[in-house]
Simulated scan of single mutants.
Amino acid sequence: MDTEVKPSSRKGKSNYSRQFKRRLGVAACEPGVSVSKLALAHQVNANMAFKRRRDLRAGLLDDAAPAPAALLPVVLAEPLAAARGEQGKRKK
């Protein structure tokens, strides 16, 4: 597995492809694998390898694009007192 790094606009920050993140997460989930040794072999920080494993288990690295947020319609109703008209007023 080759480390795929894209150039970044911020100094010191690497951008890894989604496929690389997923492959690293899958490899970190294999039984008996040392995540620290895996990270060392791919020249990434061990914390990043553990994070990719967590992300994979949480379903954040699935190949499918995340579903867009659904928007719900909003209906504005008249205030209750205005709808009642004169009936809502108390007599003194």
Rank of each mutant, 00 (worst) to 15 (best):
M1W: 02
D2F: 02
D2R: 06
E4S: 09
E4N: 09
E4I: 11
V5F: 04
K6A: 11
S9R: 15
R10K: 15
K11Q: 09
G12Y: 07
S14T: 09
N15H: 06
Y16N: 05
Y16S: 01
S17A: 11
S17Y: 05
S17E: 08
S17V: 05
R18P: 11
K21C: 03
R22Y: 03
R23K: 14
R23I: 03
R23G: 06
L24N: 03
A27K: 06
A28L: 14
A28T: 10
C29R: 06
C29K: 05
E30W: 01
G32N: 11
G32Y: 06
G32D: 08
S34L: 04
V35R: 10
V35M: 04
V35F: 03
V35T: 12
S36A: 15
K37Y: 07
H42S: 07
Q43I: 07
Q43A: 14
V44I: 15
A46G: 01
M48Q: 13
M48R: 09
F50Y: 15
R53T: 01
R54F: 06
D55T: 06
L56A: 05
L56D: 00
R57T: 00
G59I: 02
G59M: 05
G59H: 04
L60Q: 13
L60M: 14
D62L: 02
D63W: 03
A64L: 11
A67C: 01
A67N: 01
A67G: 02
P68H: 03
L71A: 13
P73W: 13
P73R: 13
V74H: 13
V75W: 12
P79Q: 11
L80H: 12
A81Q: 13
A82Q: 15
A82L: 15
R84Q: 14
G85I: 02
G85L: 05
Q87K: 11
Q87D: 12
K89Y: 12
R90V: 09
R90K: 10
K91Q: 12
